[in-house]
Amino acid sequence: MSSTNQNETLGILVCTHSTLAGGFKQAIEMLMGPQENFETIGLYEGDDIMDLSKKIIELIQSMQTHKNVIFTDLFGASPTNSAAMTLVDINASIVTGVNLPMLAEILTLRNQQLPFEDLLMDIVAKGKDNIRIITKEMILEG
């Protein structure tokens, strides 16, 4: 794979069950406006997991990005498994359990030239940190 014509921006692909991935994109664009090198794909009833792998490779290659992060919804599930199968062919890492905070974080930080592994650790921490419980008591009693 030649990297001479590839842009240095990190490519982001969200791959989920059904329309969830597209919903994430709409939510992100509502928060942050249109994003480049940000693709989504869904697995629907009747879809073949090998076909999904092929489509993931095509989408990643269409972005012409040197490095990529694939976000998936559920560890162990087909969108994740299909994405995992593509790692032989493309330059990417997978982050499972995608949520909006981690997507917003990576889209904010991806141009800051952080080491790739550090960036991934950072956004995973952000994603986990945003999962909180707010109880009735906290609101009523402070």
Binding site: L74, G76, N81
Partner: peptide
């Protein structure tokens, strides 16, 4: 199940 181990499988 041609998806073998997958979401429905692991969740349910």
């Amino acid at each position: 199940d041609d998806r073998l181990i997958h979401g429905q499988c692991i969740v349910r």
